[in-house]
Design a protein around this nucleic acid. Structure first.
Length: 588
RNA sequence: GGGCGUGUGGCCUAGUGGAUAGGGCGAGAGGUUCCUAACCUCUCGACCGCGGGUUCGAAUCCCGCCACGCCCGCCA
C-alpha cells in the first residue's frame, strides 16, 4: 500500500507544482519523523522558496492548497505544517492494508528476471568458521529477499577446486596417515577429519626438511598442471578430498540454514575450454602485456594500478582467469548476477568487473556485495592456524544457552500452556540460531564485527528473540481466538474501527513492508529488513499493551477487526523474519 | 607509502542533505487480579573522530588530518 501511496503523493505533488508554474524535478518526498502524524512529507518548499521569493512555510501552504486529492485511491489529505507539506492517507489505505496482508504479504509481483546469487564460496579446506559466517548469512538473506522481490533466484556456491590450496590439500591427504597427525578430529565429520591433513601439509611445507619440501612442491605442481591440462585422473584425486570436505561444510551451512541450488566447480571452466578461450581473448586486448614470462593485464588506464596476471609463466591459469570464464557463463545463463564477497576480495572484484567489461560484457548485470569480517578480540580467525571459532560450536552454544533460557522461564510463566520437551527443543533451536543469524544480518555489512560470546548470544537487547516474541504473541491470540483462518483477513471487518494511535501505527507499519522488501532488494541490503522487524515489534508491543483483543468487554465488531489486525501483523512479521532466514516460533 | 572502507552517549547500533540525532545494552525507579514480563513506562547519558569548507540547512556532500580494518602474491 505504501508503494502505491507514494506514487500517488508524487503524482499529486508534481501536478500541484506544475499548476503553480514551479519546477517538478525535486519533489523531496520523504518519511517524516516518528512524532509527525503523516505517512509521507515533502521538503520541497525549502528549495522553492528562493524561486518564489517567499519563506518556506508560505510556499508549503500554497503548495498544500494547490494539491487536489480527487481521483486518488489512497491519498486523502495534504496539509502544510511549517515548511513541510504532509500527506495523509484515507480509510481505504487502512482497509486495503488489512485485507491485503495475507500469507503472501511482502511478495512483490514476478519481475520475470533471473538472478544468480553466489555466496560463501569458501575454499574447501576446513570447517566453516565464524569469521566466514557472515557471507552465507548475508548471502542467504539476499537470495530470500530477491525472491520476495519477485526475482527468479538461483543460489550458487562457487567451488575453488583448482587452486594451490587444493593441490596442497590433495598432496597432504595422499602423503600422510592418520598416525602422522597429532590430534583427533574435533567432530565426527569429513570436514573436521580432513582439515587435519591440510594443516599438517601446510606445517610440513613451512617447517619440513628442505629437500622433502622441494619434493612435495613438485608433486603439488604436478597436480596443478594436471588440472590445467584437463587430466581426469588428477581431477579424481582432488575430488577425493574436495567432495567430502564440501559435504561436511554443507552440513554446517544447512544449520543456519544456508542452502545451495548448485555447487559450481571452477574445474568445469577449465575442462570445457572456456578458460582457454578467455586467455586467448585477453591476449588480444591492447591492455595485455607479457612480462617476466607471464601474461598480464595492465589496467592502469582503468584506475587499477596492480597488473592482473592471467597466465603463469608455467602456462597454467589463475583463479581470476577461471572466474572470468565463470562470470561469462553466468551472464549467458542469467539476467543478473549478485556475488557476496569478503572485503579482502575487493581488489580482485574490481579487476574482475573491469576485465569483464574489456572482454565486451555488460557489467551492469553484476552486483558485488562486499562485507567486512567477523574477527576475534585478539585478531583474525584462520583455518590454517587453527585459531577459528567453528560455526558448529557457535550454533551449539547458542542452542544450549537458549534451551537454558527456555527452561528458566518455564517456572514463572503465567500462561498455563503445555510446552513439552519437544517444544523446548524446537524453541531452543529457533531462538538460538535465530539470535546468531539476526545479530549478523542486522548490521551494515561494511562494518567490522568483533566476535564476543556474550554479545552474540544476548537474547534480549535488539535481538531475534525480541522480534520472534512478538510473532509468538500474535500467534497466541489467533490461536486462542479459535477462529477460522479464512475469516481473519476476510473483507467483512471494518478497519475504521481500528482508530487508536497504536492500531493506526501498527497498520501503517504493516503497510510499509512491501516497500521495505523493495528497498532491501534494490540496494541489496538485508539489514534494512532487520531494522524494519525491530520497528514492527515495537509497534506490535504497543498495540498489545493498549488494545485487548479477546477480553469479554470488547465489542464483537471491534474484536473481529482487531483479530484481523493481529493476523495481518502475524503474517507480516512471519514473512519479514522468513526473508531474513530467521524462524518465526508460534510459541516460546 | 598507495588504494578502499569504517569512526554516532561507557559499550553496541539506526539514520547518507531537511522537522528537537532514533533504538538497545548498562545504571536507577516503576509496572503482571487483564490475550505470553524474552514485554512495557520513566530517569541518567551524544560538542555524530578532529579541523576547515559548500549550503537557507551537514552525522550525511567537499578538502585536510587522526585512529582502526582490509588490500597492494605467477595464493585464493
Amino acid at each position: 500500500m505504501f508503494v502505491e501511496f507514494r506514487g500517488e503523493v508524487e503524482d499529486a505533488l508534481a501536478t500541484a507544482l506544475s499548476d503553480l508554474d514551479l519546477p517538478t524535478e525535486d519533489l523531496g518526498v520523504e518519511e517524516p519523523p516518528e512524532d509527525v502524524d503523516a505517512v509521507l512529507a515533502s521538503s520541497a518548499a525549502y528549495r522553492l522558496a528562493g524561486e518564489v521569493g517567499a519563506p518556506p512555510p508560505e510556499v508549503a501552504a500554497d503548495v498544500a492548497d494547490a494539491i487536489d486529492t480527487d481521483g486518488y485511491e489512497y491519498l486523502a489529505r495534504a496539509e502544510a505544517r511549517g515548511p513541510y507539506v504532509n500527506f495523509h492517507p484515507g480509510e481505504a489505505y487502512f482497509a486495503d492494508t488489512l485485507s491485503s496482508a495475507g500469507d503472501d504479504w511482502g511478495h512483490l509481483p514476478d519481475r520475470g528476471e533471473s538472478v544468480v546469487v553466489e555466496h560463501t564460496s569458501a575454499n574447501p579446506t576446513g570447517p566453516v568458521h565464524v569469521g566466514r559466517a557472515r557471507n552465507p548469512i548475508v548471502g542467504d538473506a539476499l537470495a530470500r529477499i530477491l525472491d520476495y522481490a519477485g526475482c527468479d533466484v538461483e543460489v550458487h556456491y562457487y567451488v575453488n577446486d583448482a587452486g594451490r590450496q587444493v593441490a596442497i590439500f590433495t598432496w597432504a591427504f595422499e602423503s600422510f596417515d592418520e598416525s602422522d597427525l597429532d590430534e583427533d578430529p574435533a567432530r565426527d565429520r569429513a570436514d573436521y577429519d580432513l582439515v587435519r591433513y591440510y594443516r599438517k601439509g601446510n606445517e610440513f611445507l613451512e617447517e619440513g626438511d628442505p629437500a622433502a619440501v622441494e619434493e612435495a612442491e613438485d608433486e603439488i605442481q604436478a597436480i596443478m598442471q594436471g588440472l590445467g591440462a584437463g587430466d581426469e585422473a588428477t581431477y579424481e584425486r582432488t575430488s577425493a578430498v574436495v567432495d567430502p570436505m564440501l559435504s561436511g561444510m554443507g552440513a554446517s551451512l544447512e544449520r543456519l540454514p544456508a542452502e545451495f541450488d548448485e555447487f559450481v566447480k571452477e574445474t568445469r571452466f577449465m575442462f570445457d575450454g572456456s578458460t582457454d578461450d578467455v586467455v586467448e581473448r585477453l591476449q588480444d586486448l591492447e591492455e595485455a602485456v607479457y612480462e617476466d614470462d607471464a601474461w598480464q593485464l595492465d589496467l592502469s588506464d582503468r584506475g587499477i594500478d596492480k597488473n592482473l596476471v592471467f597466465l603463469r609463466s608455467d602456462g597454467t591459469s589463475l583463479y581470476p582467469t577461471r572466474d572470468l570464464a565463470h562470470h561469462e557463463w553466468k551472464f549467458a545463463n542469467f539476467d543478473r548476477a549478485v556475488t557476496v564477497l569478503g572485503e579482502d576480495h575487493k581488489l580482485q572484484a574490481d579487476q574482475l568487473r573491469t576485465t569483464l567489461a574489456l572482454l565486451g560484457n555488460d557489467t551492469d548485470q553484476l552486483r558485488q556485495v562486499i562485507h567486512s569480517y567477523v574477527n576475534l578480540p585478539e585478531g583474525k580467525m584462520s583455518t590454517r592456524a587453527g585459531t577459528a571459532v567453528n560455526l558448529d560450536d557457535l550454533l551449539d552454544e547458542a542452542v544450549d544457552r537458549a534451551r537454558e533460557e527456555v527452561e528458566n522461564r518455564l517456572g514463572d510463566r503465567i500462561r498455563e500452556d503445555d510446552l513439552d520437551d519437544e517444544d523446548v527443543e524446537r524453541i531452543a533451536h529457533q531462538v538460538g540460531i535465530g539470535a546468531v543469524r539476526y545479530d549478523i544480518v542486522a548490521k551494515q555489512p561494511t562494518k567490522a564485527i568483533t566476535f564476543e560470546w556474550e554479545r552474540a548470544l544476548d537474547f534480549e537487547a535488539q535481538s531475534a528473540p525480541y522480534v520472534q516474541y512478538a510473532h509468538a504473541r500474535a500467534c497466541g491470540i489467533v490461536d486462542r481466538a479459535d477462529a477460522d483462518p479464512a475469516d481473519l483477513t476476510a473483507g467483512d471487518v471494518d478497519a475504521a474501527l481500528l482508530s487508536t494511535p497504536e492500531e493506526r501505527d501498527l497498520l501503517r507499519t504493516i503497510a510499509r513492508f512491501p516497500a521495505v522488501i523493495k528497498e532491501a532488494a534494490e540496494d541489496l541490503q538485508p539489514h534494512v529488513v532487520a531494522t524494519y522487524t525491530r520497528t514492527f515489534a515495537d509497534r506490535f508491543n504497543a498495540f498489545y499493551r493498549e488494545c485487548p483483543v479477546l477480553s469479554e468487554d470488547v465489542d464483537p465488531d471491534l474484536r473481529a477487526a482487531r483479530l484481523a489486525l493481529v493476523a495481518a501483523a502475524r503474517n507480516t512479521v512471519a514473512n519479514a523474519l522468513n526473508a531474513l532466514g530467521v524462524e518465526a516460533p508460534e510459541s516460546m
